[in-house]
Write a protein that binds this DNA or RNA. Structure first.
Lengths: 157, 157
DNA sequence: CGTGAAAAAATAGCGTT
DNA sequence: AACGCTATTTTTTCACG
């Protein structure tokens, strides 16, 4: 039984909020004056909007885009996870949360159940972290693709 | 012939720079006073360091971490790319640069040549964007895993 | 790199629609 | 409920030691 789910606006967003998000996606250190100009608002209104977007969770935080080569941890990998049984997303999240090398995790369509993006100091460290993922009761096997070189990185616009 | 490559410091970074990077990774909107406190520096010295990290490319930029559900573009996919022949990384970069739906691209170990992270409005839009990737002369075939739900996202610490 | 002064921005309060 | 305006505080910025 298919259900047409029309939920275009679950977080109560409008065009102004979108303009603000586009602005801070491009530059998270933009001033409220700049954000306001991008959204057609005064600086104080822009601040109130941005604070609200953070409070409601639409914006999770602000981070730097760092060249991995510049960091101590610069070994990256995409890891496909195949599960045993049918763990719920919540169970998987809980299991992966304690492994700090797992930076991002998503359930995906296709043969694999989940895709991880992992970051470690070096190959031995990565191998050990993948071992920890595997040792999770929920995980059957993994398939890793280690990043050799980064071709492209851009803000999500 | 294996070569032991000791290149611990390709970008001329020290512990202070690392502390600064850790700070702005956690919060890109931190003030120079906060960054300075994290690195044991005065605000003006912290600004000079941060400006230099951006100028040298160690920090590529600052962005917001946005809940994809809050955006108009909220269909994500990981796409494995298998190439024809042996294109250089530079050729691949050039080819993918014009496809705005490709947010990240890396060459990887394993069967696939590259891994893409793509972002589109919806499934039809994603399909069309993947078609553009495929139509690139360098690409033989692709294998996509569409993101169903996001389990985990954290700053790269 | 730190200091200190001047300029710019962030913040909080207030009146308006 | 959300905006713009204004006054105050904080931060940024830059020349100098």
């Amino acid at each position: 039984m298919a259900v047409i789910c029309t939920r275009p606006d679950p977080l109560g967003m409008d065009d102004i909020d979108e303009a603000i998000i586009r602005c801070v996606l491009r530059n998270a250190r933009a001033t409220y004056a700049q954000i306001g100009k991008a959204a057609g608002l005064s600086p104080s209104a822009a601040k109130r909007r941005l604070d609200r977007l953070v409070a409601t969770g639409a914006i999770r935080g602000f981070s730097a885009l760092v060249d991995p080569q510049a960091m101590a941890w610069h070994t990256e990998a995409f890891v496909e996870v195949y599960c045993t049984g049918n763990p719920t997303p919540a169970e998987l999240t809980k299991a992966l949360h304690d492994i700090p090398e797992v930076i991002e995790a998503c359930t995906v369509s296709g043969a694999a159940d989940a895709m991880l993006y992992m970051l470690a100091r070096d190959i031995p460290h990565l191998e050990q972290a993948i071992q920890r993922v595997r040792s999770t009761a929920l995980v059957d096997r993994t398939e890793s693709a280690i990043v050799l070189s980064r071709l492209l990185t851009r803000p999500r616009l």
